[in-house]
């Protein structure tokens, strides 16, 4: 009887350790996958852009990346408390006005932020391109975003193109990224 209890206890302990190791392995594999997305882009590959559907900041429905298929998309992660985001906001707005008639969408993803603060930011900087609000920051992990601002370019074919821009995006980087996204049709 005592031997059986001891054996069962040992089996339970080994099972718990195995479960924890499996969880650790899953987490490491998930992180490696996200890193490889940026790495693959830097290596000249064009991986599928991770999908998402996020509510609009103005409360009028939501936008999914899938719904923008066929357009070139500038995905810009930002937050109202982020200082460099203030610097790049006018450049993103200018790019949106210049390229929207050519099938380009600038999409701002406001993450880990208060809605009211984000709305104030949008009003202060006269932003007219669509802004979605991702309070918990669920989209950040999918793209491996490590800080704000960060900008990605999605081609017409739904694949990531160009370079991931960490920090405030310059006008030149925007033009280069948008042109490549417009060219990516297959």
């Amino acid at each position: 009887m005592a031997g059986r209890v001891k054996l069962l206890s040992q089996a339970a302990a080994v099972s718990v350790v195995a479960l924890l190791l499996a969880l650790l392995g899953w987490q490491v594999a998930a992180e490696a996958n996200v890193r490889s997305l940026a790495d693959r882009l830097e290596a000249g590959e064009s991986p599928e852009a991770p999908g998402f559907e996020v509510p609009l900041l103005n409360g009028e429905g939501s936008i999914s990346l899938a719904s923008l298929r066929g357009k070139a998309v500038v995905v810009n992660f930002w937050a109202s408390w982020c200082e460099p985001c203030k610097e790049e906001a006018p450049r993103l707005e200018a790019a949106w006005k210049r390229y929207r008639d050519r099938g380009v969408v600038v999409l701002g993803i406001d993450a880990q932020d208060f809605r009211g603060d984000a709305r104030g930011f949008v009003a202060r900087y006269g932003i007219t391109y669509p802004i979605v609000h991702d309070g918990p920051g669920a989209t950040l992990g999918r793209y491996g975003v490590t800080g704000f601002p960060e900008t990605w370019f999605v081609g017409r074919n739904g694949r990531l193109v160009g370079a991931r821009i960490q920090g405030p995006v310059s006008e030149e980087e925007l033009v280069q990224g948008i042109e490549r996204a417009l060219e990516a049709t297959s």
Binding site: Q112, F114, R115, G135, P136, A138
Partner: peptide, 8 residues
């Protein structure tokens, strides 16, 4: 929670 989700 409404702003940041239950993760907060």
């Amino acid at each position: 929670v409404d702003e940041f989700g239950e993760e907060v």
